[in-house]
Design a protein around this nucleic acid. Structure first.
Lengths: 337, 337
DNA sequence: CTCCGGCAATAAACCGCTTTACCGAAGGCT
DNA sequence: AGCCTTCGGTAAAGCGGTTTATTGCCGGAG
C-alpha cells in the first residue's frame, strides 16, 4: 500500500505539494508537476479512500433504505438512484428494512454515525413517532414514496389520490359499480391518499362504498392473496378490485387463479405502480404507472442539493398515469352477475 | 458533533480509557465505567464511523457489482447478500455495471482504494483479459454466477450444464426434437456451459443440432425478442425454444405474443434462472431454478471468510432444479407441424 | 539599496478514533 | 524490607490524507 508520503519522498517534494497538486488546489511549475505525476505512476499510487473521507469529513456515499430490495418496484428505484449517484461520484449503500422499525432506525443512526452523507428513506409502515423524532429536522434525509409525518425533511411523492381516481374512473367507465379496494396499511400516507381518492371518485359518481369492501393490510403478496380470497367470498361478489400496489395485485392474481376465477372475465383488477414485468402477467395488468426512474433521479438530486445546503422544495409530487392493459372487463350493459 | 475526547473530559478520564471501555478491550472498576457510560449517554456520543474506519483500516462494507440491479434475478441476489451482510455488521454498496467494462474496472479500483473491504462481482460479459489482470490474485474478491477467467479468486456458480441438460431432457421427453437455443454471449462461462449441456444432451439422444438454430447474444430482453423473431421465421419452425435466461424468455414471450403465436400451443419455451414472478407470466414459465438466496448467502460467507484470511474453496457449484409450469406443450405422437 | 509582491513550496495542525506500550500505586510473598 | 504482580489507567504514535498559515527566495519598483 503506497502512501502519499512515499510519493512525496520519491518526487522530492512535501506531501502537501503532492496532495494539493493531485487535488488541483495549487499550480506547480511543469517540471515539478511532472516529477510528481511520474512518481504517482511509477509507484501506482492510489489515494486511500478511508483517509480521504475522514479528513474531508465526507463519506462520499448515500444510503438507500427500502422496505425490500427484491421487490422489482424498489429495485427499479434503486437502479435509477444508483445510476444518478454514480454520475455524481457518490456510492449507494443498500439497506433493506424488511418492514422492521428497528432497521429504519438503524438507517438513521448510521447516518448520524457518518457512515454516509445522506439517506433516501422509503418508509414501510406507519410511524408511531419514534422514527419521526429521530429524523426530526436532521440534514441529509429525503423521504421517497412514503411519509414519516413528524419529520421536517424534503419529500418526493406521487399523486396518489389522482392515481386512485384514474383507476376508479376507468373501472366505472367500464361498467363496474361494485368495486372492492385492497388498500395498504392503515395510517400510511400513500395508502390513505389512495383510499381517499377512491372514495371521493365513487362518491362523485353517486356510488356507495361499503366499508367492509375496503381491506387494509401490508403491501405484500401475502396480504393481496388473503384479501382476494376474502373478496371472492363476498356476496354479492364485487365485479372489480382496485389493489393499491402491484405487489398486492400479484397476490390477488395468484389467489383468484387458485380459485379458478378468471381475470378479467370473472373479476376485474386494477393495480398501482406499474411495476416492471406487470405487462407480462396473465392477464397483462391494467395499472397506475408511477414514474419510477424519475422519482429516483429527483430524490437523489434533492438529497445532494440539500447536502450542499441549497434550499429544496419541502414536497414534490410526481404525476401518475393510467396504463390500460387486459385485466379489466367491459361489462357495460351486462346484467349484474 | 461530540467526540471521544469530549466524553473523556466529561468523565474525567483519558480518551484511551473511553475508547477501550467502549470496545471492551479493558475492564474498568464499576464506578469509572459508570461515569463513562453516563457521559456517553448525557452527551449523546456516537463514534464517528469515518474515523473508526480509518484507524481500523476497515471500511466495514462490501460492494456488490451486478450487471443491473433492476433485473429481478440480481435484485433477489442483492437482497440475500444484504441480509447476510447486515447480520455480520457489514454494509453493502451497490454498483450496477450496466454491462460496461469500465464500470467493472471501477469496482475493482474502488476496492483497491479501500472504499470497501470486499467485492462480490457478477460479471456481465466475456473479459478480454483486462479485468482478469486487475483482479489477479487480489484478496477480497469473489466471483458470483459468472466467470472472469484469468482471476485467481473464489467462485460460486451453479451447475449450468446440468441445468441445460434437465431443460433439454424435459423438452425431449415432451416430444420435441427440433429445439432452438437462445444462448448468452459467446465466451461467457455460464453461456458456454449451458450450450455445451444442451448439445451434449441432444447428441445423447441422437438428435442433431443445427448451428443456425443456436443464437448468441446478450442476456437482455431485447436480444430475447430479436432472437424469437428470427426463430419464428425459421422453416421448418422449431417446436421449442430453450432460452438460457429468464430475462431472455421475457423478450421471447413478448415477441411471440406480438406475432400472434401461442406459447406453448405454437411453440414451447423453457427458461433458465426461475426469476421471481416467472410463475405469473402468461404462460407460467417452465424454467431451471437457481437457488438464488443460497447463492447470495454463500457468496457473502466465502467473501468474509477470505477477508479473515481463511482458505475457501476455489469453486463452489450449487445445484439447479427443473421447475415445470405451463410453457411446454406435450407433442408426443403429434405429427410434425 | 531597500522594500514589496508574488511564486514555489512546506510545516504542522487536524480529522476522530485505535492501539501499543508503559507507568505508578497498592497489595501479596518471601 | 525488598521484589513481583495486579490493578487502573494513560501518553503518544499512528491511520493517510487535507488545509491553513507561513517561509524563503527572487525580481522589479521606488
Amino acid at each position: 500500500m503506497v502512501t502519499l508520503s512515499e510519493v512525496a519522498r520519491e518526487a522530492g517534494v512535501s506531501p502537501t505539494a503532492v496532495s494539493r497538486h493531485l487535488n488541483r488546489s495549487i499550480v506547480l511549475p511543469k517540471a515539478t508537476a511532472d516529477r510528481i505525476d511520474e512518481a504517482v505512476g511509477r509507484l501506482g499510487y492510489r489515494p486511500n479512500a478511508l483517509a480521504k473521507r475522514l479528513s474531508k469529513g465526507k463519506a462520499e456515499a448515500i444510503c438507500l433504505a427500502t422496505p425490500e430490495i427484491s421487490n422489482p418496484f424498489f429495485a427499479e428505484l434503486a437502479s435509477a438512484i444508483e445510476s444518478a449517484a454514480a454520475e455524481r461520484g457518490y456510492g449507494v449503500t443498500l439497506l433493506s428494512t424488511r418492514g422492521r422499525p428497528a432497521r429504519e432506525i438503524e438507517a438513521v443512526n448510521q447516518l448520524a454515525d457518518r457512515y454516509f452523507d445522506g439517506l433516501i428513506m422509503i418508509a414501510a409502515r406507519p410511524d408511531d413517532g419514534t422514527l419521526g423524532d429521530l429524523i426530526g429536522r436532521r440534514q441529509g434525509i429525503v423521504l421517497l414514496d412514503e411519509d414519516v409525518p413528524a419529520a421536517r425533511v424534503p419529500r418526493i411523492f406521487v399523486e396518489n389520490a389522482i392515481g386512485a381516481r384514474l383507476a376508479t374512473e376507468h373501472l366505472i367507465a367500464m361498467g363496474h359499480t361494485d368495486i372492492a379496494l385492497i388498500a395498504g396499511p392503515m395510517g400510511l400516507l400513500s395508502a390513505n391518499e389512495r383510499v381517499e381518492g377512491f372514495k371521493a371518485t365513487m362518491a362523485a359518481h353517486g356510488l356507495r362504498v361499503d366499508e367492509a369492501r375496503m381491506l387494509h393490510g401490508e403491501f405484500t403478496r401475502e396480504f393481496g392473496h388473503e384479501a382476494a380470497l376474502a373478496i371472492a367470498r363476498m356476496s354479492p361478489r364485487p365485479t372489480a378490485i382496485l389493489a393499491c400496489s402491484d405487489y398486492l395485485s400479484v397476490g390477488v392474481l395468484g389467489a383468484l387463479h387458485d380459485l379458478g376465477l378468471s381475470v378479467p372475465d370473472d373479476i376485474s383488477l386494477v393495480g398501482f405502480d406499474d411495476m416492471p414485468l406487470a405487462e407480462l402477467f396473465d392477464p397483462p395488468l391494467t395499472t397506475i404507472r408511477q414514474p419510477i426512474a424519475e422519482m429516483g433521479r429527483i430524490a437523489l438530486e434533492r438529497l445532494l442539493a440539500s447536502l450542499d445546503g441549497v434550499e429544496v422544495p419541502a414536497m414534490t409530487r410526481l404525476p401518475v398515469e393510467l396504463i390500460v392493459r387486459k385485466s379489466v372487463a367491459d361489462i357495460r350493459g351486462n346484467a349484474r352477475r
